[in-house]
Design a protein around this nucleic acid. Structure first.
Lengths: 217, 217
DNA sequence: ATATTTTTTTAGACTCGTCTAAACTTTTAC
DNA sequence: GTAAAAGTTTAGACGAGTCTAAAAAAATAT
């Protein structure tokens, strides 16, 4: 049984490690957790003793299979609760994160099973992030053109289809680079152009451009 | 802002004090919280310094207006979540308490407001306990004849209308005494007799008897 | 290739909530 | 009305998670 804090560390390490493939450095964890490196070192020792991560002094940590499974369950709960808040309680997309941060720590496998069922077994949360299934299976590579997103939904840019440098330069100028979050505000019926939000700024892009931006969903 | 533990103490003190009317002794709190008297004394000092209770050494504690308001908010959250679990997630009556004990500590006034709305502003939880409204107003004296309960619902016996000793003797024999929890299993259409559950035993009572048992709802 | 900077770890301390053991106060019994 | 019992508080300690300051290791620069 993990504590609230241990779960948060594990989740942060999972996110920072690209699905557990890369090692994560102490300071990166400290930044993510808004804490100090010394505190991270202490927790690393604890999680390492419990076999949720493997740790070599001065060279960062790697999440174990067991640790990954725990992290994915927390992420599953977080995303199911976010879906509940938006779909059932009519929260706005941007209001749910803090509440889900609390709800994700509720301990009851039956509750999550019933919540999943109540929501109709969703595969993605309102942010477009995939929801791990009950076995911890997650569809990491899911992607779709920005053009196919529904108005009001958000995603993360993971790639650009056409590598024409004029397109890439343009995308760079408007800030539409991989890793960036984009929210689709509106789709213009006439020419298929999109109004999107990046870095809190609203801009308009053409249909052709939006078909070349691949989003994580 | 109260900690998880402080909220639990305050809730226990509220319940033990009969809506804040009586003082509560240290050992009673220790029993309710499954902890030791010494730990209770420590927490009492903390809550007293924060003005949630008033405290005189060796003579127990009394909850203040402020403490009562906090306790009622926790109770409100607990009962709304229990209602959600039973009504929306199809939990059984007896499975929800532990989960609601966790959910009641989620901090977000907006969440509770939206949950209340989603549930249709219920006034009682599935156990029949009244749900305090958003201002902390609670209908403590609400009562109804056992006969008017809905099948599947539970309540606490608070009084008996007719004081005919033969009725009281009968009620005593079957265990239907004030303070006892009763669950209505089924209502017989033909003669209005009820099948009820008391102390895990199912018994049948007549319509006349059930109209004389007043339940807290 | 050594000196400086950056990163990480250790050491010691603090808060929160808990405990045991001992001291103290109140109640009960005779 | 005093002695024993019961209940309560104090004192000191511990584990979890955090911190600051200092030491140690690794990376970087010249």
């Amino acid at each position: 049984m993990l504590s609230y804090t241990e779960e948060n560390y594990l989740k942060a390490i999972y996110h920072l490690s690209d699905d557990g493939t890369k090692e994560v450095l102490t300071n990166a964890i400290a930044d993510a957790m808004s804490t100090k490196a010394a505190s991270v070192t202490d927790m690393i020792k604890k999680l390492s003793a419990k076999k949720f991560i493997s740790y070599e002094k001065y060279y960062g940590v790697k999440i174990t299979k067991q640790g990954k499974a725990e992290a994915l369950m927390v992420i599953r709960k977080h995303r199911l609760w976010e879906t509940f808040l938006v779909e059932k309680l009519n929260f706005d997309w941007d209001e749910v994160h803090e509440i889900a941060e609390q709800l994700e720590h509720i301990q009851s496998p039956l509750l999550i099973q019933k919540l999943d069922e109540f929501l109709g077994f969703p595969t993605a949360d309102p942010h477009g992030e995939p929801i791990p299934d009950k076995h911890g299976k997650i569809n990491i590579k899911a992607q779709m053109p920005l053009f196919d997103l529904m108005p009001g939904y958000k995603g993360i840019i993971i790639a650009v289809k056409d590598s024409d440098s004029t397109l890439l330069k343009y995308l760079n100028k408007i800030g539409a680079i991989p890793g960036k979050k984009v929210k689709l505000i509106n789709k213009e019926e006439y020419d298929g152009s999109l109004e999107i939000e990046i870095d809190d700024q609203r801009i308009s892009i053409s249909k052709v451009v939006s078909e070349n931006i691949l989003m994580a969903v």
